[in-house]
Amino acid sequence: MQNTKHIFKKEFKAYFVSPIAYIVISVFLVIIGWLFFSTFFLERQASLTRFFSLLPVTFAFVIPAVTMRLFSEEINVGSFELLITLPVTFRDIILGKFLAAVAFVAIMLSPTLLYAVTISLLGELDWGPVIGGYFGALLLGAAFCAIGLLASSVTRNQVIAFIIAVGICFTLTLLMDFVLFFLPSSLVGVFQYLSANFHFQSIAKGMLDSRNILYFLALIFVALFTTHLVMQEKK
């Protein structure tokens, strides 16, 4: 466990010594801020509902940019050999990198708390869905980080890692809306249940249902475990 912490520390620092962190955070805030506020004043409602409905699609593009380098860069530069021959286990490496990415996403998300504060000054803001929304956003972000980590472990090319991760995250997000058009109604429920957006929106409504939380935890577990298998296979 001690080593998970050391790897976390190293990875977390690594985000902020390269310009990637600042670029990703700025891009995220510009995109989400513009999309949210461009319709906010038309709706004349003091609520963050729309912000949370935009979040999954935005995350599906931004988080893969955060996670794409985690393994690909190390494999490409060759530092992976140094890392893996130190007395650390795969579990330490995967968890350390995963938690560093999640912490980074939390930091990226934190400036948007100001939206909640400003909006609460404009009208009666219901804090329940806001708290639920941020909790769900962290779960969603963590799940996408795990998927991004998996994508990064299969290739030494960061661009490919990015595209694979976007593909998976985007599919998981859109599964909810698109299946409505294509599938018989008996199957819609099944596919919606697989959709990350579906579970996220449930949490963002302020309902903390254990099934939704379990969905994200399962997604994280499956992605991290698959990463573990990929790394073992590479030996």
Partner: peptide, 28 residues
């Protein structure tokens, strides 16, 4: 075992001190 790989590739963006500090932590 302490290992020096052939090309000694190390994290390009880390400071030397930072890197040695990290290795010291991991090696306990």
């Amino acid at each position: 075992i302490g290992y020096l790989p052939e090309a000694a590739p190390i994290y390009p963006e880390m400071l030397v001190y930072e890197y040695l500090d990290f290795v010291a932590d991991v090696r306990g």
